[in-house]
Simulated scan of single mutants.
Amino acid sequence: MKRLLSVAACIGLMPLFAASPSFGEAAKDYTDATTGIRFARITGGCFKMGDTFGDGASNEKPPHDVCVSDFSMAKQETTQNQWKVVMGNNPSFFKSCGDDCPTENVSWNDVQEFISKLNKLSGKEYRLPTEAEWEYACRSGGKSEKFCGGNDVEAVAWYFSTSGDRTQRVARKRPNGLGIYDMSGNVWEWVSDWYDEKFSSIKDNPQGPSTGSNRVIRGGGWFMLPKNVRASVRSSLEPEVHTYDVGFRLVITAP
């Protein structure tokens, strides 16, 4: 059964520490021929994941060392037009925002259907990012950034005070150091992991718990306060839930 609601609670606060300058550097871009989704190629590396600024919620602790391999991430949240190209419909609550606005009101299960259809159309193997990949990319390759792209929330995020009570067109704020937009604010983003309140993991390419009841969402959305669009903020929803402030972006391991 579909449920339409807002993610306006269960979150925390956060930032991170710096990785080696070679980590997270962007290589040549890649564009999906089916949808036009543009991807930034990201060199993997190791970083401190979780609340390293000391102002996070309990589910952002303890900060721990994580390493991720190379991958490519969509520069923008999946848009309403890109969803329509693959699925032939538009489930978004904010349809009036336009084709270049993020797709929202899609459940984690809906996203899996989108990915399956896109992979058949494109011959590729797109997927949702792991939570570790998401945070590494958000922080411009594991750097010490409070928000996804720096410490100035106004520069990088659409949130409660700036959004006009709705989503906004993608890529209008400043990108992070990898050329990726809107990882803080606009819409929350589904990732692949089952939710783990304890926030602990193996070091190398963690995939999250093997089972669970909720899937992780990251990044905060247009409805949130600045403290809830920080780089380390985590929340979760049941995978069948649809809300008007949750969307997604794709990754691919080897395009």
Rank of each mutant, 00 (worst) to 15 (best):
L4P: 04
V7E: 07
A8V: 13
A9M: 13
M14F: 13
P15K: 15
A19Y: 03
S20T: 14
P21G: 08
T31R: 14
T35A: 03
G36K: 07
I42E: 00
T43Q: 15
G44F: 07
G45D: 06
F47Q: 08
T52C: 15
F53R: 09
F53D: 15
G54E: 09
G56A: 08
S58P: 10
N59D: 15
P62L: 07
V66E: 08
D70M: 08
F71S: 07
K75M: 10
K75T: 10
K75P: 06
K75L: 06
Q76P: 11
T78D: 09
T78I: 14
Q80W: 01
N81P: 00
W83S: 00
W83P: 01
K84R: 14
K84I: 03
N89H: 09
N90M: 07
F93I: 00
K95F: 01
C97N: 04
D99P: 01
D99S: 12
D100A: 11
D100N: 15
T103D: 11
V106M: 05
V106C: 10
S107V: 11
W108C: 03
N109Q: 12
Q112R: 10
I115M: 11
K117S: 12
K117H: 08
K124Y: 12
Y126P: 04
P129Y: 04
E135A: 03
E135D: 08
E135L: 00
C138R: 00
C138Y: 05
G141V: 10
G141P: 05
G142S: 05
G149K: 04
G150H: 04
A155L: 11
A155K: 14
V156R: 00
Y159R: 05
Y159V: 00
F160T: 10
S161T: 13
S163I: 01
T167F: 00
Q168H: 09
R172H: 11
K173F: 04
R174V: 14
L178Y: 08
I180F: 00
Y181R: 01
D182T: 06
D182N: 06
M183H: 03
S184F: 00
N186E: 01
W188G: 02
W190Y: 11
W194H: 06
Y195D: 12
S201A: 14
Q207L: 12
P209C: 02
S210C: 01
N214V: 01
I217Y: 01
R218S: 07
F223N: 08
L225Q: 13
P226T: 06
N228I: 03
N228G: 14
N228W: 12
V229D: 08
V233Q: 08
S236N: 13
P239Y: 00
E240P: 02
V241P: 03
Y244S: 06
Y244F: 13
R249N: 06
L250P: 02
I252T: 15
A254E: 15
P255S: 09
